[in-house]
Each structure stands twice: as structure tokens, then as C-alpha cells.
């Protein structure tokens, strides 16, 4: 009999499901890929066949201009891969279409979370905890200093700034896939019904969310607005545009950024942010550790982020764990 979990291997450029010759979130082109979600460090182009949720495939099509080899699978649906491996896509609560991939083979179950969070998000279904033998978890915010505050408090900070400075605008840097749409949806939920202005780079992704039934209210492009209309308004752009020449057209913007990294003051200062909004699409420390306890795996494999600290936590709590040295995953501007 083969050693436990020998059928799944962590290689530098992805997780290899050996009997099916499939790769999860590979960083190089492969014949068969299973993709957890649409962020570009997980969903790269050029694979022969790509299995993912319809939402993730639509996001990838937007980015790579092709549907070739796309094979959609719904949440909860199980597909049979070669070599006797069953793969089930389960919501991860990270962004639209994000999924954990549950793999069953020879009586063993491995769950690959991709990126995930535990907080409610109006733009995607919530994370579902699946008991398993091996739990392959992310660790982006895997340090005990990261405890994300309630999103209501952060949205409140943004709306306070708008009220306090009616002649300025609040310019929020937000990751183009997921964060921007969640921010808009949360503003709507808090009763903010004014038009929200977008940097051109965010438009297509917002339209895609709307096409999948996420209501984002009235959205307009900064390019189509007069300067006067932007006073007192919320403007959203990708983080890279925050300190760019582009923002000069705005009326004296208050620079904000929606990211879990904003928890650390000097991170905010390094990005010239005046109004840090601690909003993350990843699990914070308490959620990472609580999730491991809830899923209660025989082993945890930690993929990317601050794996050292989470590994230490597992050790302190007598849980078997190891860090995987995967390449190509980035500390995105979450």
C-alpha cells in the first residue's frame, strides 16, 4: 500500500494530483488545471484544459480573451478525474466564483482552500468547512497581529470622511477583482446610494459581477464625470493608480486603501495612505486557526503567506503541519 497522501504532491509550481495528472492553481502552463479562483497568481492562462466554476472561467476569459479548454463545474458538483480521483468545488467565500477543491481518492480526503475568508460577503456565497485528512490552507494574514475589524466599522470610517470633507472626494485603492465590488456592495448595504465613480480599469470586472446577479447600484466612470460632480463622492481605483498622475484630475482626494495590510500603520504610510480601511478578503489569524480546529485535519499544509507563524501555532497546538514552498503566489494588494 502506498504511503498516506502519496497521490498528492506539492511541487514548486503547484499542487500535483498525481493519478489524474492534474495541477491545482499551477504557475506554469499544464495540460490539466483545476483553478480555485480568478486572481491572476492562481488563475494563469495557457493550460490545455481548465476546470473551475463558471464565474472563475468568465473572469479568466475577461483576462485572457479565450475560453479554450474551459470546463465549468458548479458549486457542490463532483467530477470524476482520471485515476479514480473525485473533485468537488465548495464555496471559499473569497471572491466571486472562488472555490475550495475537495479531492477524494482511495478513502483519503484532501481540501485545497485556495484563498478564503470567513466573514459574510454580499458578492459571493460563504465558506463551507469540510472535514478532511489533509487541509491545504493559505496563510496570507498568518500572523497574530492580523485581526480584521468588523467591516461596518471600516465602511463607517469612509462615510465619516465623506461627511467631514464635502468638497473633497475619497479615493479608495481596491483590488480590481473582488475587493472593489465587495466595497461597493457593502457601501450599498450601509445605505450609501449615491453614484460611485470608477477608474476605467475596474469597469469590466464590475459589469461581470452584475452579469452574475450582484447588484452594485449606480456606477459611473471618472473619465465621464466633471470635476465638480466628484466633490463629496467615492472614487475607486486599482491600488497602482492611487499615487499615479491619473488621480490629479480628482478634487483634492483623500487617499484611502481597502486592504488587510492597512492594519499595520507603517504599511499604510509606505503607500501614502491617509485613510486606511482594514478590509480583507482573506481569513485573519483568528479565522485561520479556528478553521483548522473546525476542519480538524490529520495534517495541515500551509501554502503561501506568513506560513512560519501558522506552522508555529500548529506545533503549539500539537497539530501536524508543514509549509509548502510554492512559487509564484504574491502578496496581492488585498
Amino acid at each position: 500500500m502506498a504511503a498516506p497522501f502519496a497521490w498528492i504532491r506539492a511541487e514548486p509550481h503547484g499542487i500535483h494530483v498525481v493519478p489524474a495528472d492534474c495541477w491545482i492553481d499551477p504557475s506554469l502552463p499544464v495540460p490539466n488545471a483545476l483553478v480555485t479562483h480568478g486572481h491572476s497568481d492562481h488563475a494563469r492562462g495557457g493550460h490545455g484544459r481548465t476546470v473551475a466554476t463558471p464565474e472563475t472561467l468568465a473572469i479568466m476569459e475577461l483576462r485572457y480573451q479565450t475560453r479554450e479548454g474551459a470546463m465549468p463545474v458548479q458549486y457542490g458538483e463532483t467530477i470524476r478525474l482520471p485515476g479514480g480521483v473525485d473533485a468537488t468545488f465548495v464555496p471559499a467565500g473569497h471572491v466571486l466564483g472562488s472555490a475550495q477543491i475537495v479531492l477524494d481518492h482511495a478513502g483519503e480526503r484532501v481540501v485545497v482552500t485556495g484563498d478564503y475568508k470567513r466573514r459574510p460577503d454580499p458578492t459571493c456565497p460563504p465558506f463551507e468547512a469540510v472535514p478532511c485528512d489533509v487541509f491545504v490552507t493559505e496563510a496570507t494574514f498568518g500572523l497574530p497581529v492580523f485581526r480584521h475589524p468588523p467591516i461596518e466599522r471600516e465602511i463607517g470610517k469612509l462615510r465619516d470622511a465623506l461627511r467631514r470633507e464635502p468638497d473633497r472626494c475619497v479615493l479608495v485603492g481596491a483590488y480590481a477583482l473582488g475587493k472593489a465590488q465587495r466595497l461597493i456592495a457593502e457601501l450599498r448595504r450601509a445605505g450609501h446610494h449615491d453614484a460611485i465613480f470608477l477608474h476605467g480599469a475596474l469597469e469590466r470586472m464590475c459589469r461581470l459581477y452584475e452579469a452574475f446577479g450582484v447588484d452594485l447600484g449606480e456606477l459611473r466612470l471618472v473619465a465621464d464625470a466633471r470635476r465638480e460632480e466628484l466633490r463629496g463622492a467615492t472614487v475607486i481605483c486599482p491600488p497602482s493608480a492611487l499615487n499615479d498622475r491619473w488621480s490629479r484630475r480628482l478634487p483634492d482626494p483623500i487617499t484611502a486603501m481597502a486592504s488587510g495590510w492597512m492594519r499595520v500603520r507603517q504599511r499604510a504610510r509606505q503607500r501614502n495612505v491617509e485613510l486606511p480601511l482594514i478590509i480583507s478578503d482573506h481569513a485573519d489569524w483568528d479565522e485561520l486557526t479556528a478553521t483548522i480546529e473546525e476542519v480538524d485535519p490529520a495534517e495541515s499544509w500551509i501554502t503561501h503567506g506568513r506560513e512560519e507563524a501558522l506552522l508555529r501555532w500548529c506545533q503549539l497546538h500539537k497539530r501536524r503541519a508543514r509549509a509548502l514552498a510554492l512559487v509564484g503566489y504574491e502578496d496581492e494588494d488585498d
Binding site: L143, P144, V145, V264, R265, Q266, R306, E308, A309, R312, W313, L316
Partner: peptide
């Protein structure tokens, strides 16, 4: 845990914070 504190301090860059 001292190691978790050290890792955190190294990331944050300020003991008080």
C-alpha cells in the same frame, strides 16, 4: 508565544504597535 511575538515584531517593525 515568544516566537509568534518575534515574527510579528519583525513584520510590524515597532514593538509598541
Amino acid at each position: 508565544d515568544p516566537l509568534l511575538f518575534a515574527l510579528s515584531r519583525d513584520f510590524v517593525g515597532d514593538t509598541a504597535e
